[in-house]
Design a protein around this nucleic acid. Structure first.
Lengths: 216, 216
DNA sequence: CACTTTACTACACGCCTGTGTAGTTCGGGA
DNA sequence: TCCCGAACTACACAGGCGTGTAGTAAAGTG
């Protein structure tokens, strides 16, 4: 549970307001005056604490990166008490920042945040590789990066997924449907080994030219 | 190959410039004057043809939706000549608009575009369901929506994936690495049936409360 | 106490923006 | 030829923006 907004320092309230308005309206559309109003301070104080609008955004990015690192370390510490679902915690903690993070990710920002997730994914994949029958011919790092992007897809494209499912995927009922869907997708390969081999055979051997499976 | 920009009508040149600048800089940061300059016309002509900045963006959205529908129908027409790789064509056609589309998708716009892709994905999934051992307990539409989001992930998070892979994933060599990575991920389930069953057992039966796997 | 620093406000400046308006060029029918 | 509408330009306007500056209140600190 968050502390009472009245208890937070003005600086923190400004940062939270910025995270919210940057997320809701985007960086350019959100105004310093609007952020100040939400935070209950004067617009001058925003400048006093953060210097400029861009610096304020940088601080928002850094804050989220710190928050994820902190959560990560914390979970890694009491790994023994692993009854708590790390993913569920992370989702609920970062839910208020979903919109901000999505915008930032698409613009190529918050790289440390993505990197932390990708490193985490790499760890998880490395464990699984030990029990894997065929040796992966693709670097672990590549699979982790692409896998992380895919894991973020539902958050980033939240509005479209919710619309197509007919329910807010982050609401109580939506989360259950999303979880079932993810479990189904994650536990069934999209391509059979034969299909994969056939497609792989059509790829150039070393560094090639034109044929590929893309994401769009 | 695109026709010579000089041959395009001014209206088309304005739209192309808008697609480019909205993609590169975002809707708010891009200016009508900047778009006019790139298109080689006066800023007034932009207004003459499109009425307002928002209407110009709407036209960009609609143009891309039409382009995808056109490509889709075309491919469906000469299905017999299926030696051409639909995905590869789609990727190369929409590559110049990747940035624009990503921004639009995150903001919840271009819904028809996402819907077209999701419908396509549903068709493809329906075929696969016929050869599937266990009956899926999740609606086809849900799997198609989430699967589509995942397929778009690499495009939307292009910069992060490229950075982590150390190579532009849409360059010649990057595409090959990306293709290999996708083939590996698509042909290996992320969860074993037992793990999936265990996680599914922890979900509430009907409409539930708090535990779920989210996208972070 | 005096003094400095920090937190905070009020206010004005200048720029850039989207938009409105008046006017010009030009091609194609009657 | 005349004319009319579409394509297109030049220019001015008002508003909102980020930012700069001056000043006040409060909180340490010797």
């Amino acid at each position: 549970m968050q502390p009472d907004p009245e208890d937070l320092t003005a600086r923190a309230r400004i940062r939270d307001a910025a995270l919210r308005l940057f997320g809701e309206q985007g960086f350019d559309r959100a105004t310093i005056r609007g952020i100040a109003e939400v935070a209950g301070v004067s617009s001058g104080l925003v400048r006093h604490h953060f210097g400029s609008k861009e610096a304020l955004r940088d601080e928002c990015d850094a804050y989220l990166a710190r928050a994820l690192t902190r959560l990560n370390d914390q979970v890694r510490a009491d790994m023994a008490t692993s009854e708590t679902n790390y993913l569920a915690v992370a989702v609920s903690v970062f839910a208020p920042y979903r919109s901000y993070i999505s915008r930032a990710l698409v613009e190529g920002r918050v790289a440390p945040l993505f990197d932390t997730l990708a490193d985490l994914s790499a760890e998880w994949l490395a464990e699984r590789d030990e029990n894997r029958a065929d040796p992966p011919e693709v670097p672990l790092k590549a699979r982790a990066a692409v896998g992380t992007a895919m894991s973020l897809a539902v958050s980033v494209l939240y509005e479209h997924v919710s619309r197509r499912l007919g329910v807010d995927v982050f609401s109580a009922e939506g989360q259950v449907l999303l979880a079932r869907t993810l479990l189904d997708l994650y536990s069934h390969p999209w391509l059979s080994p034969e299909e994969a081999a056939a497609l792989r055979a059509r790829l150039p051997e070393d560094s090639g030219s034109d044929t590929a499976e893309g994401g769009a």
